[in-house]
């Protein structure tokens, strides 16, 4: 039986892991490779590395980091942050990334989705959607949640599927950082509207939140950052809990 995936996300700045902005400040949380190795040992199913450096001159640092990660890590990993061209993807895939994640660039230029899918295969392409509920609908935001677009979330997810995206990483801005649970409503809508795998993100604060999202939506993965970094929910404890609640996970 296919297992639900538990996916820690590591925010990377200048080659180091940083803790989320919802805490006191952005502070060094250590060597990403050490943290990644800890997650592999604990039973993480995949990893996501999100580069928040965002300056072109530092992009080279990311490729070097990805090369090191690929040498050390024997589970699939996705790299995202500032990817805006097929050449960006080529550099990361050649360095050993299994998948790349694009967000703002896909909204600005949807053809980029088809171009990446054609060259590297859909399985290589995660399209991240940052979504926010306001004025009675879920809207797509870009640039780390700073810019609102006129795209509605479900329609955009369907367009991503049509263009050849392989997977959707859906982050609810309403839930992100709250630790009150995933936004089940939009996760359910998106995961039922398309036949691509959907990773739910934003709001996980307890084991129960993962159970809810897997029981009440068709999401096949759950992503979180700080609760794993600081061991608030150790991955083995989470997987044990899900398993006891009849949700199939890898042990």
């Amino acid at each position: 039986m296919l297992k639900k995936r538990i996916i820690p996300c590591l925010d990377i700045q200048d080659g180091r892991t940083v803790k989320g902005v919802n805490f006191l400040d952005i502070r060094d949380a250590g060597d990403p490779i050490e943290l990644a190795q800890r997650y592999v040992k604990e039973g993480a199913d995949e990893l996501v590395f999100l580069d928040i450096t965002a300056t072109v001159e530092k992009r080279k640092t990311l490729v070097e980091l990805v090369t090191k990660i690929a040498k050390e890590i024997n589970i699939p990993f996705t790299v995202g942050g500032g990817i805006s061209s097929v050449d960006d993807v080529a550099a990361l895939v050649q360095a050993g990334a299994d998948k790349v994640s694009i967000n703002s660039a896909a909204v600005k230029n949807p053809d980029l989705i088809s171009a990446i899918a054609k060259r590297f295969g859909s399985q290589c392409l995660v399209v991240a959607i940052d979504t926010k509920f306001e004025d009675n609908d879920w809207w797509v935001y870009t640039h780390g949640g700073r810019n609102k677009t006129d795209l509605k979330t479900v329609a955009w997810a369907q367009e991503i599927e049509r263009l050849g995206g392989g997977e959707i990483l859906l982050t609810s801005m309403n839930s992100d950082g709250t630790k009150d649970g995933f936004s089940l409503d939009i996760t359910k809508k998106v995961s039922e509207a398309i036949s691509l795998p959907v990773i739910a993100s934003g709001g996980a604060g307890s084991e129960k939140h993962f159970k809810e999202v897997f029981e009440q939506t068709k999401a096949t993965g759950g992503l979180a950052a700080s609760i794993f970094h600081f061991n608030e929910i150790p991955i083995p404890v989470l997987k044990d809990y899900l398993s006891r609640n009849n949700i199939s996970v890898r042990k």
Binding site: K3, S122, E167, T220
Partner: peptide, 10 residues
């Protein structure tokens, strides 16, 4: 069901 199969299976 969702295609591709993506993830861990026994």
């Amino acid at each position: 069901d969702i295609v591709p199969q993506m993830g861990w299976n026994n």
